[in-house]
């Protein structure tokens, strides 16, 4: 029984730990991506200089936007030539490209909304952004998070239940002792504390293995992956302080499970 409850804490915290590592890193990737999402506002060909100027003012005064940058059709062509080759230099004769404003949403999650807003402005031809991509990512993240949370809560309860059962067995085994303690006037805390300590111990013992495993795994994984992602947009979370915070959290959760588990059976079976 003791083994079962420690294992339950171990399994729970292992999953909690892996889940948190994944969520935190995905979150980081998502944030990295978000930060990079630019809105590209294509200006209507019919718009004259004044209209362009007006549009720029409008964009700049919109509090939901930051980083408003203008790029004329000539500059756009330069970018194209650089990107796709000298053949495009032909277009210098009659530039078919539009003027462009590059902007960013002040809060990345609002990108789609803000893009809609801009579409309604005069002199815009089209508003483009990494549409769909980030939304999908957010959806995946949210679904993953919700499933994970439900799973973890179920596991937490299982672990608490097993701990409370273990403690109940100890209480039953020490029934006579407890009865006498109460009879001669031991305080409720005096009676209760050993069982709470037992619960805390079970929680700490259960937390040890996940802490060690996750630390080792993350250090190795990080050292393996990080060099490969050198210079990339996605970077794994730094080992420290993340892994220490995670270990602290796992330990605290283990203790919490232990305290709650024992608290439940102490309350039920000691009536103190």
């Amino acid at each position: 029984m003791t083994f079962a409850s420690i294992s339950a804490v171990t399994v729970t915290l292992l999953l909690v730990g892996v889940f948190i590592v994944m969520m935190m890193n995905l979150n980081k990737i998502a944030t990295n991506l978000e930060e990079d999402v630019e809105i590209k506002v294509l200006v209507d060909l019919a718009a004259n200089d004044a209209a362009v100027k007006e549009l720029e003012e409008k964009l700049k005064s919109n509090p939901n936007l930051t980083d408003v940058q203008f790029s004329s059709n000539e500059e756009e062509l330069e970018i194209m030539i650089k990107g796709y080759g000298e053949e495009f230099a032909l277009y210098k004769q009659g530039n078919p490209l539009r003027h462009v404003f590059y902007v960013k949403a002040a809060t990345p999650q609002d990108t789609a909304k803000v893009a809609k807003e801009i579409e309604a402005y005069d002199s815009t031809y089209e508003v483009k952004f990494g549409e769909g991509k980030i939304e999908k990512l957010f959806n995946v993240l949210n679904t993953g998070r919700n499933i994970g949370i439900v799973l973890i809560i179920a596991l937490l309860f299982t672990a608490m239940f097993l701990i409370s059962n273990t403690i109940r067995l100890t209480i039953v085994a020490r029934r006579q002792e407890i009865e006498i303690m109460k009879l001669v006037g031991a305080t409720n805390n005096f009676v209760r504390i050993p069982f709470l300590l037992e619960g805390i111990w079970l929680g700490i013992l259960g937390a040890l293995l996940p802490m060690i495993l996750i630390t080792i795994a993350y250090f190795n994984l990080y050292d393996y992956i990080q060099p490969k992602l050198e210079g990339e947009l996605f970077q794994p979370l730094d080992k420290t302080p993340f892994i220490f915070q995670l270990n602290g959290l796992l330990l605290a959760t283990g203790i919490f499970i232990g305290v709650w588990g024992s608290f439940m059976s102490v309350r039920k079976f000691l009536k103190v």
Partner: peptide, 10 residues
């Protein structure tokens, strides 16, 4: 009160 029982029992 439940809390005061130990003192009585002593």
């Amino acid at each position: 009160k439940q809390k005061e029982v130990p003192q009585l029992r002593r």
